[in-house]
Design a protein around this nucleic acid. Structure first.
Lengths: 184, 184
DNA sequence: ACAGCCATGTAACTCGTTACATGATTAC
DNA sequence: GTAATCATGTAACGAGTTACATGGCTGT
């Protein structure tokens, strides 16, 4: 049994620290709702794979109900919580990884015409607005439970981070657009 | 032969659009120097793998010199240039993917003490400064060749984007730190 | 009855990494 | 002479994806 887990394991484990017990299906939904903004939302099949691995390591416990439809709910164990705390404090924090197709296409804008690049950036601004709206909805749902000491204080901090990031990206994109339009 | 190439192929192909001919080794260096800020810098072994694939598709041409040390330089072909232009215009641009371990750890800050989270964020601010300095050096090296119409106009736009991004991240991290310190 | 959601997985595959191997050239 | 850099790969592996398969439950 390998000792180190991929970060995605810790990420999913982290989603189980909010006091509830989730099925794989629900965990995937939670990831889609929140985690996708600053990590990736793993495919459904991977969620089940990771849960199996976490269970194997004793970091989550499975409660299986055998009705007609078999459902298994997972909750974090004391060991899982310890492991997460240890990871938080002792594992060096990697610098964020960005895969930015917009920047990539901008880099090689000279192989095509300016108009194509401009339209690409305009599309990005729209996508940013849509994503920002989704994240704002998540943030709104935390209002009232986001003060220091509250259960959703940290998710609120992260959501605010994301909103500020989207605003910054939109601003940068607009400024770049202005520079490109200047010399048409 | 597959029709679609992974984005990393186009990224490497894009690095060959600046009028020179590179060995795999040099291409890896160029990726380390610039591409890593908004994409990933592939492992050396993958650079050679991708070059072989690009050559197979006729998107790059290889010039092999057989001295004592065998070196192969790659240049983009007309077909490669066409393919890149087509990709720029016709392939929908994916929304950027962010893997942000700092945000991830912040999210689950409640499993540990505030001091640990604060130190993690402080470390991030330092890493940001170091990365920003590296990128600034790249940007400085383009001065004088970065006006509209110049060869390095687009790389300059991308570098400016990155610098603004790092500044924004630093600002967000500092604001988050302030909020965490408030309630100590 | 039928669509859509809930729920759980398996199989095949691609991308990309690390570890390893080899040897020439250059700088000190 | 020896360390660092230049240069090119192969092999084994892991992470994560898409496609596929199965079937129960819920609302209309």
């Amino acid at each position: 049994m390998r000792q180190d887990l991929p970060i995605t394991s810790f990420a999913l484990l982290g989603l189980l620290t909010f006091g509830d017990e989730l099925t794989g299906y629900e965990l995937k939904q939670r990831a889609d709702l929140t985690m996708r903004f600053y990590w990736t939302s793993p495919a459904t099949s991977q969620v089940y794979t990771e849960l199996a691995r976490l269970a194997e390591h004793g970091l989550v416990a499975a409660d299986t109900e055998d009705g007609n439809r078999r459902t298994t709910r997972y909750r974090i164990t004391a060991k899982g919580r310890r492991r997460l705390r240890e990871w938080m404090g002792r594992t060096p924090t990697r610098f964020p990884t960005l895969k930015h197709p917009v920047a990539l296409k901008l880099l090689m804008g000279h192989v095509t015409d300016d108009q194509t690049v401009i339209e690409m950036l305009e599309g990005y601004v729209e996508q940013l607005a849509a994503n920002r709206a989704d994240l704002q909805a998540v943030r709104d749902s935390l209002v009232g439970r986001d003060e220091p000491g509250d259960a959703f204080r940290n998710p609120a901090l992260v959501a605010d981070w994301g909103l500020a990031y989207y605003d910054s990206e939109a601003e940068i994109a607009e400024k770049t657009l202005a520079r490109l339009r200047e010399n048409r």
